[in-house]
Amino acid sequence: MLSYEAILLLIVLGIAISVVFVLISKFLGPKNPNARKKSVYECGAEPQGSARKRFPVKFYMIALLFLLFDIEAVFLYPWAKLFRELGFLGFVEMGIFMLVLIVGLIYAWRKGALEWE
């Protein structure tokens, strides 16, 4: 296997730093809570209603579209790595692959799946 010591070190350091920061603010930070501070944090806006309810399907739709084009990006990686070796034929092959997905993107666009209303 390749040597992943650097990544392992990064993971360990990342976990350690976040834990240390949380602990420091827990033990050293002054605490004078009030009702407003203890309310749910919604990007600074006033929280509206309960979070325990059903999400609209459009969230799912966007996530699904993201996932599909995420997978497309996965296929692009090995191709991009070999772009020069594969030459024009590789470009055409990837072009066909992309074309099929662009058809889908146009369809989704036309159907309003990208609209947020």
Binding site: P56, V57, K58, Y60, M61, L64, L65, L68, I71, E72, F75, E93, I96, F97, M98, V100, L101, V103, G104, L105, Y107, A108, K111, G112, A113
Partner: peptide, 26 residues
């Protein structure tokens, strides 16, 4: 590899169709 793109397309179309069907209810 090329068939995989068709599979992704099918998933995309299916998702848009299904979600479009429940849009009124959402």
């Amino acid at each position: 590899f090329e068939v995989a793109s068709v599979l992704l397309l099918a998933a995309l179309l299916g998702g848009v169709l299904l979600a479009g069907g429940v849009r009124g209810r959402s």
